[in-house]
Design a protein around this nucleic acid. Sequence first.
DNA 1: TGTACATCAGTGAACGCGCGTTCACTGATGTAC
DNA 2: TGTACATCAGTGAACGCGCGTTCACTGATGTAC
Lengths: 223, 223
Amino acid sequence: MAEPAYHHGNLRAALLAAGFELARRGGPARLLVRELAAAEGVSPSAVYRHFPDLAHLAAEVSRLAREALARAMRAAATAAAPRPTLDGPERAGPTPRIAAVRRFRAIGRAYLDFALAEPRLFDTAFMAASAPPSCADEPSAWDVLLESLDDLVATGAMPAARLPDAPIVAWSSVHGAAGLLVRQLAPDGVTPAQIRDSTLDGVLRALEIREPAALPAATPDAR
Amino acid sequence: MAEPAYHHGNLRAALLAAGFELARRGGPARLLVRELAAAEGVSPSAVYRHFPDLAHLAAEVSRLAREALARAMRAAATAAAPRPTLDGPERAGPTPRIAAVRRFRAIGRAYLDFALAEPRLFDTAFMAASAPPSCADEPSAWDVLLESLDDLVATGAMPAARLPDAPIVAWSSVHGAAGLLVRQLAPDGVTPAQIRDSTLDGVLRALEIREPAALPAATPDAR
DNA sequence: TGTACATCAGTGAACGCGCGTTCACTGATGTAC
DNA sequence: TGTACATCAGTGAACGCGCGTTCACTGATGTAC
């Protein structure tokens, strides 16, 4: 058992990790100087050795939450189907076109599953920040989406004419549905899984992605 | 000029109106007991003569904001085209089917225009409330949407098969786009009008509403 | 039609709380010689 | 290899603020007789 040392070691990283966990359990409202300090067994003023103020610390935690979301999206895409390598040898398994659709749907589903499983972290990710993050999101959920849309066009799964508007259309729908789920604004009798699947189906129709072979049986409902 | 009387007259209604105006200018964060009281030239404790606590007052203001949104939607629908009267005499003007599509699009557009014109009021409408409103929304934005979707099916503009999911699909998209607009999360170079129109077009495709005659020229951009 | 009195709608001062932040300080660490 | 000393990373008490809310009160209103 390690004696609590006077010098913490890596307080900055520890405070961010504590903030992430605090936000996961209580949302942005729980990001308080005293609470963060207490979580690391440190006095409140020690926080100011590593961050100019709470707003900057909170902005970093918000960024971490967005990055966790983006990682979940990327992982789901990879799990759904391999990334199409256009000049590689022909592989077994789904065609590149089907794979691209599966990946796209998995990304949207991961976004909604994240909102459902971690609603307070999701809130933290998109909270109104009063300070800028220290660096850009890495990975960025927006970039994951754009990449997937490019693949859809490259494989012929989506008309190229849809590409300019596609990011807005996809993000609006999925982010809006996530908001419904997180704030529990859905009308009575509609289950989260219904909202999720209806939204994803709607996005595919809105983007004129027609690839029925990519849809069923591949995404059984764990709920 | 009326002498400020000791008895206010109708302080409850006046506080709600002041709250609405305060929220319009500063969002939910400006709904403070002292600020509300000052707006009516009254001491803070007078508020407690009419509301059990701030949470209940704020919940009422939030409801008023939602009702303002719903009224804007209804007004836009009426302005776009008359409500189809199925058993009435044949009128001049667009067919009932075209009218229904125009009304539907006008409703969505009004939602997004409201979010754009009054972002802080929009935030207030959907803020996390810690008390229930005293009564149901009247009118209710949700009901306006459902009514319009029923009309689309009744006039043959939308396949009946789309009806069960349509409320979720439409609300997710439009509410999500409104969130993008309000929080200014859109990527650089994309204008609010583009977000609005892309989203509405996407919803029509997602719901398989195909009525090109209802679309152009009827909705010039005021921006 | 005047008057006592219950009731209603305000006042104003204060309480208590939790917050972010500051400041003089002290303990631990590392480095030059 | 030991020692003075600058530097770094914490402590702990306190400040000041703004908040929702309470409480004893007072001025205005309306009603019974």
